[in-house]
Design a protein around this nucleic acid. Structure first.
Lengths: 257, 257
DNA sequence: GAACGCAATAGTGTCGACACTTTCTTGACT
DNA sequence: AGTCAAGAAAGTGTCGACACTATTGCGTTC
């Protein structure tokens, strides 16, 4: 949805004690990536109010690029903005999560169907090859890699649907649930049956069997949802463990405000 | 998608020659609404580069709120941002339009289905009453009112699906195609059969007949798409009429860049 | 006369400062 | 002790200025 290059956020300490004040013309982008990382890793906790000054100091830039980044994150649903009160970390409640996964299921099923109807044979072949190339080492990869490969797979389906809007939507949804998916992958409950699932999807695509593919997708997403819910609960518990219950109460009050 | 109150943009000349420099704490919001209006009405033409200084002068605010508004509009797909070169009015090509309508169809069908499955009877009744309240004068209203009532109808369906994400998505799509829908409504080709269609939808909802409703929705959207394409062509022709072909050529070159 | 480079201009990206609003603190009053 | 209000502190919203980048126009060279 947002109109820029992605380039994942992996450099972390860009400033802090860096005296050399370079005007690198992309403070805003770096701020965006860094803040998103904080959100994803719960360094900024759900429900928390975001202090612009503090953030700008810790990133070594002024408030302008910070605000730009936060506005972007607001459009993407990561944070919310209350006039004159500032930005808040959006707390992804369990229901909210369900809603997002439901939306994802809708988009993915539609994409699969359109792909079956429209894609050329050699495009379907691209999907098959993509999967074949990664299937071997798939389950032994670290979580980040698995996640990226999985997202790539589903995104490719969206691309083959021929509708760029679907791609944009799915990418935006992915960004929002990525942190949870990672938690889920690292969680003991993580289902290794994904391999079978993906192979099934490829088979359905080759046969152009839209119904079969959509059925698989729906089942798959439903399964991950229930697994994810437990993983999320555990993660939230861990995040709020050091504090006492007061924090949780406040969070509930502000939830989705 | 974006996290604020909507409150439609209908006040137009907020500043310009207003000497009194009030710090009203919502310049950003006003800028957003005004710029969006310009985009919707083709005052800012597709493909055009947006000059922040000029805009800020004409709105009587500094560049900060202008940039904030433009960033928001970028997230929503109205404009695009090229680093160090600025914002450009996104040219909604005919294909792009098709993709958007397709996405809309997907979302609306899914919403209708979920509504049939989940909504309580009194909620379905709300939909019926909403339509009954406006059906009488519907076709004689001015374009803006028809548009708002129509959007409200479809948005209500999304709400009754029980999934706020669907509502947000639909709202965002609506914002992007609103200007075209208005053009289409004012175009001589505008189909008055919408009344029948909406009544059909309500009937299907009352019967909880998801298949029937989805069929109607798909047909309806497909019909409007073809009608809209002609309307869009006429409108674009009108917009680019004063200039010569050079402008169109430039536009093609930059398209969706 | 066309291509190239260089200076001048226009425009974006970021900053620090200040006005205005919300939130917290303190102290008077019941 | 608890409540409320006034003032202090913290924080957001907006501004104008300046640094940096892209673009335009001009003069030079081949």
């Amino acid at each position: 949805m947002t109109e820029r290059v992605e380039g994942d956020a992996d450099s972390d300490q860009p400033a802090m004690n860096e005296a050399e004040t370079r005007r690198s013309a992309d403070s805003s982008e770096r701020a965006y990536l860094t803040i998103r990382k904080h959100l994803v890793e719960f360094t900024l906790k759900p429900g928390e109010r975001i202090n612009e000054v503090q953030l700008s100091r810790s990133l070594g830039v002024s408030r302008t690029p910070i605000r730009e980044a936060l506005n972007r994150l607001a459009s993407e649903g990561f944070v919310s903005l209350t006039p004159n009160r500032g930005f808040f970390v959006r707390s992804l409640s369990t229901e909210g999560l369900l809603d997002l996964y439901e939306l994802r299921s809708i988009i993915e099923c539609a994409a699969f169907k359109l792909m079956c109807e429209r894609a050329e044979d050699r495009e379907i072949d691209r999907l098959r090859k993509y999967w074949e190339a990664i299937v071997d080492g798939y389950r032994d990869q670290p979580a980040d890699i698995i996640l990226a490969e999985d997202e790539g797979f589903h995104l490719l389906i969206a691309e083959l649907s021929g509708n760029p809007e679907l791609v944009a939507q799915l990418a935006s949804i992915n960004a929002r649930i990525r942190f949870i998916r990672r938690i889920q992958i690292e969680h003991p409950s993580h289902d290794k049956g994904q391999v079978t699932f993906h192979s099934g999807i490829v088979a359905a695509a080759v046969k152009r069997d839209a119904e079969e593919g959509m059925k698989l997708l729906r089942e798959h997403i439903e399964m991950t949802v229930s697994a994810t819910q437990q993983a999320l609960k555990d993660a939230l518990l861990k995040v709020f463990a050091p504090d006492n219950a007061a924090d949780l109460k406040r969070r509930r009050k502000v939830r989705d405000a």
